[in-house]
């Protein structure tokens, strides 16, 4: 905490949540976790459709970017979808998509980066994500998937540096 922030007032509000629930929650509850895992498992049948819908949206936005460039609402749309895929790819059982989408999102994270990012490199990320789905390459245990992800990451790091 910097000196500019002093003085510091510390407020300890009454713990109304603990009062509301009637006490402390057990720190570990294997039954609750098992129920949650089962709920996620039951949703898995939907995951393939959901990730495919996201990738279709990504491809549409990318097609528009090829016409109007990345410094556009379409460029921002590519980032937003890549960011969503970064967060959800692993949940959808495609960690390789999370990895490639992370690289893509870093490449075009803000307006400044979108102004200079090579459209071809953005397109290569989008094509790689589609290829992973089409070939059912789910993680980087697959040698081609791993090599592709590493190559894309290397090119992005060369342009924008390491993540901090």
């Amino acid at each position: 905490m910097t000196k500019r922030e002093k003085p510091i007032e510390i407020i300890t509000p009454p713990n109304m949540l603990r009062v509301k629930v009637g006490g402390r929650i057990a720190p570990a509850d294997p039954e609750a976790i098992a129920r949650a895992e089962k709920a996620l498992q039951q949703m898995e049948v939907e995951f393939e459709d959901w990730i495919n819908e996201e990738v279709v949206k990504l491809e549409k936005a990318m097609a528009a970017v090829k016409k109007v460039g990345l410094a556009s609402p379409e460029g921002e749309a590519v980032f937003v979808i890549a960011h969503d895929l970064r967060g959800l790819g692993t949940t959808y059982k495609f960690p390789i998509v999370t990895r490639i989408a992370t690289s893509l999102a870093r490449l075009i994270e803000d307006e400044e980066r979108r102004a200079t990012a090579p459209v071809a490199l953005v397109g290569a990320h989008v094509n790689s994500i589609r290829a992973a789905l089409a070939q059912n390459v789910r993680d980087d245990k697959h040698p081609i998937g791993k090599a592709l992800a590493e190559e894309l990451e290397t090119q992005v790091i060369a342009l924008v540096g390491e993540a901090q």
């Binding site: 003085p7 510091i8 407020i11 603990r18 929650i25 057990a26 976790i33 970064r86 692993t90």
Partner: peptide, 27 residues
């Protein structure tokens, strides 16, 4: 993300059991 059931459970449990105090400064 990716969200795991254990991580989400832990955050909720901590919020109820051991809430952080609040801090007020000029900023």
């Amino acid at each position: 993300k990716p969200v795991t059931s254990e991580a989400l459970f832990k955050r909720l449990q901590v919020i109820v059991n051991r809430p952080r105090p609040f801090v007020r400064t000029k900023m």
